[in-house]
Design a protein around this nucleic acid. Structure first.
Lengths: 355, 355
DNA sequence: GTGAAAGCGCTAACAC
DNA sequence: GTGTTAGCGCTTTCAC
């Protein structure tokens, strides 16, 4: 069943059928009804490939993330898909893992599918910050379609960024811990993404502002599980139980560093924070009295654990909305769309801290 | 840059370029190299729409799930995407929510994108079991493309199912609880999916086999949060903190039923189980002595909570692999591909039970 | 081994 | 308001 069949059956030309299908006003009500009836009864569906060929667009956007099984990204993608669907767009999903080469490869592949825009979820896409070169592929991609970053910042034409103010979030938490008399705040992280760097800056600034020393040994980097190379900077290759493993791994690593002293933990994500909680349990430390813990992302984990976890919510949903709003403008041909968009974080206080 | 440009630049016809691009053997090594060089240097990418139009396929598969922000489905989708990508397929993701109408709508839309196959993740797609009518749209869809169900069972031509043996999983857990002297095992569920029904059957069978009475009041249905209608049979519309809310909601509902007596809980998913754990904490019940708890899905939540949760792992990854293996066969034109595939579950014992 | 040409099914510019 | 027709960029027969 193609447009010719419908035209024949309705006794009109293909142009008229096309007009009806696309809701053009230049069709008489009568012919419209007739054509619609034929379409209905013959269950005709326009061929999207042919349409795509003509319009050079299939109304699809590409969504790329390192790992959809990560709670944070899943939530973002969930939200993005739902809203894009409302606007009649379909989403091609790519999970690129954490390696630079794979990111570039996936990006190229998505572009070759002639997507109308590209959304990148996760701070990882903004590079490790060591090298401008790392994000060159994004500027390259942006020459073809508008690129939107969720929770990351990259400068470039046709690149639009939405990110939480993780620096401020980390600052506020650290400040609060200091105010409650904490002297040795452990900064716990497992990746060197844009977001992690912002958190570190916030942490260090808060210490400096309070006149506290910044101690190198309190910046505790947990090499991701199962990662041989530096490239592998996240827990993304879903080895069975990886996420589960991460929690216990964190506990074990903290236990292993017997000489390391700290009275509180600021963790860059909730699984690290839960790991710290498990550590406290193993050591018999009371939380929050002997060990205060704060996490990041305000995920489900924050309420699963016991005591429940204070966590910074970086408002993914709003980041997604901001990105989409601007995307619609860009796709609509608007110029002067704001490229850079920062959203304040929100600290969700629970029982693992006493501030 | 299109195939004509490349042809001109290489001094050959478009047919030859096409052959080179598609790796046809009927090209001399010399011309091949020449064309390849031109393609490389001009950064030519074949237009997928035109190709799709000719071949009536763009090598994409549709993946539909009720909610990608659900850990279980996210893991499935993650795995599906990774493997399909290896085989050169792209994935269009749809999140349909839990309403029947939305499921049908999303399915139709995906089909209209001329996907090569459709994968449905989640037991919800197998219907509530009340009505054959509910799954009619799947049989309809299967007339166009092969349909694959992950964790659900629907009969029909061109429909292929992979599902865990949730009946056996529930049976085993219940049996183990009985063996440890538990007399009143609460069956906690929040949806009436295929999977939930299987679990209920397993639960009841185990009781019957042990000569224990099946008590209606111990089958505890938790109406999903924010759901007005029966249609809304899952926690899928991501209201802020829905998943988080589910845990506390479970605790509150259990606390509210003051007269209900039970010494153990078998929960149909981990968040319900964690809710039961929170209930035990609120009541001052020791786990597992005074209250044994077992969950389902062996998610990250199972190790976040304290004590850590015994949970049934229904092996999503294997379900996905089985589905993909068969999909590749079907797409390859093979006939007599096994339609029905059941995978045994695995009980992961942790601290919330003493068996 | 290579080229010419006929589709694939649609959109849109142009004529009436 | 409706029809005619020229692309869109590719694959694939069919000649040579």
């Amino acid at each position: 069943m193609n447009i010719y069949d419908i035209a024949k059956l309705s006794g009109v030309s293909i142009a008229t059928v096309s007009r009806v299908v696309n809701g053009s006003p230049r069709v008489s009500e009568k012919t419209k009804q007739k054509v619609l009836a034929v379409i209905e009864e013959s269950e005709y569906t326009p061929n999207v490939f042919a349409r795509g060929l003509g319009l050079n667009s299939m109304k699809t956007i590409g969504i790329l993330c390192p790992d959809i099984s990560d709670q944070y990204m899943a939530e973002a993608v969930s939200h993005l898909e739902k809203r894009m669907h409302q606007y009649g767009y379909d989403c091609i999903l790519g999970c690129s893992g954490s390696r630079q080469a794979a990111r570039e490869h996936h990006t190229r592949l998505l572009l070759s599918k002639r997507i109308d825009a590209l959304i990148l979820v996760g701070s990882l896409f903004a590079g490790s910050g060591k090298d401008q070169e790392e994000t060159e592929y994004l500027r390259e991609a942006a020459k073809q379609v508008p690129v939107f970053l969720i929770n990351g910042y990259v400068e470039g034409e046709n690149i639009y960024c939405s990110y939480g103010d993780d620096c401020q979030g980390a600052y506020d938490v650290t400040k609060a811990l200091i105010r409650r008399g904490k002297k040795r705040i452990l900064f716990l992280y497992d990746s060197q993404t844009y977001s992690a760097r912002q958190k570190l800056i916030g942490y260090e600034t808060a210490l400096a502002d309070a006149g506290c020393p910044i101690r190198g040994e309190l910046k505790f980097y947990l090499r991701p599980l199962g990662s041989g190379s530096m490239e592998e900077s996240c827990f993304v290759d879903s080895v069975p139980g990886t996420m589960q493993g991460k929690i216990h791994y964190t506990r074990e690593m903290l236990l292993a560093h017997r000489t390391l002293e700290f009275d509180s933990v600021f963790a860059c994500n909730d699984s690290l924070a839960v790991g710290a909680l498990k550590y406290a349990l193993a050591k018999g430390l009371s939380v929050p009295e002997e060990l205060s813990v704060a996490g990041y992302n305000n995920s489900m984990m924050a309420v699963c654990c016991e005591p429940e976890l204070t966590s910074v919510d970086n408002q993914v949903k709003q980041l997604c909305n901001d990105a989409i709003d601007r995307m619609l403008e860009v796709l609509d041909g608007k110029t002067d769309v704001e490229q850079d968009h920062k959203v304040p974080c929100r600290i969700v206080k629970r029982c693992t801290t006493d501030f």
